[in-house]
Computed example of a mutant assay.
Amino acid sequence: MLWQDPFELTRSDRAAGRISTITWNTRRGIYESEELAHERTPSLGTFTLSVVAFTAIWSLCELPLEVLSSRTPLESAACIAGKLIWLCLTLCALSGSRAAKAAFVFCCGVSTFSIATGLAAEQQFFAVGFCLLAVECALKAAAFILIVWPAVRRVVQ
């Protein structure tokens, strides 16, 4: 048999009761099924999108201070390259790519822990730097929680 009817059910489907109702839609002129399409990756909410976007904006606001405090041109270039990579990752995460969201969440988590460990020392020596890093740490922690929390709730339920 060269051609197989796509609507024909196999014996195992019939035995398991997986019979999908397929009907002809005369208005559209197509067959329709009651089966649900595969779930897409859930999109981020408006507040989450705002927090994620604000992490990118904040990192761009910090860039001039980081470049000015760099001791060598190579350090300045590394700061600029790092910010460009962060900006690209943020834009990809905002576009809805599942892999980019995972990478963004990983970078937020790692960055939050690394910043938080140095906040006490920063407060003693450079108060302005402490304020900038505290805001960055809070934004990245919020982005991490806002993206990870719905996924955790779906898994637990």
Rank of each mutant, 00 (worst) to 15 (best):
N25T: 07
V52L: 10
Q124L: 06
L133R: 07
P150Q: 09
K101H: 08
S12L: 11
L36H: 07
L89W: 04
A134L: 07
L36Q: 14
A138W: 00
F47W: 15
W58M: 02
F47G: 11
G29N: 09
A120W: 04
R27P: 01
E34M: 14
F125I: 12
E35Y: 10
S59G: 12
A121D: 15
A127I: 12
R14P: 00
I115P: 01
R28N: 11
T117H: 14
T48E: 07
Q157Y: 13
E62A: 05
G96Q: 05
R153G: 04
G17E: 01
G129I: 06
E35P: 13
S33V: 02
W24Q: 09
E8A: 03
E39P: 00
P64A: 08
R71D: 04
T112L: 10
V51W: 02
V152L: 13
E8V: 12
V156K: 06
A81F: 15
V155S: 14
S114Q: 14
I57T: 15
G82E: 13
S43I: 13
R40Q: 12
C137L: 04
W86K: 14
I85E: 01
Q123A: 03
D13Y: 11
V128W: 09
V148A: 02
S70V: 10
I30M: 14
L146K: 04
F113Q: 11
S20T: 12
G129K: 02
T72W: 11
I19M: 09
M1K: 03
C131G: 12
A141F: 13
T41I: 15
V110Q: 07
A78N: 11
R14N: 01
T55W: 00
R14L: 00
T55L: 05
A77G: 11
V155T: 10
L133N: 02
F7H: 04
I115A: 02
Q124N: 05
M1L: 10
L94M: 08
E75V: 10
L84E: 15
T55M: 04
I85K: 08
E122N: 11
R40C: 14
A141R: 00
I22P: 01
F130E: 00
R11G: 03
P150N: 13
R40W: 14
S33Y: 05
W24V: 09
A16E: 08
T46L: 14
C88T: 06
A93G: 03
G29T: 09
G82T: 15
W24F: 13
R11C: 06
S95N: 07
E39G: 04
H38E: 15
K83V: 14
T48P: 02
V105Y: 04
A37H: 08
A56Q: 03
I22F: 05
T10R: 06
A121P: 05
W24M: 08
A100D: 00
I80G: 05
M1R: 07
L2D: 03
T72R: 08
A103W: 05
T21F: 08
F125R: 00
I145L: 14
L139A: 04
F130A: 07
F104I: 03
A53N: 01
A103C: 06
P150G: 09
L36E: 00
L139W: 02
A151F: 06
A99Y: 15
I85Y: 15
L139F: 02
I80D: 07
S12H: 14
S111G: 14
V135I: 07
I30R: 13
C137Y: 12
P6S: 04
F106K: 06
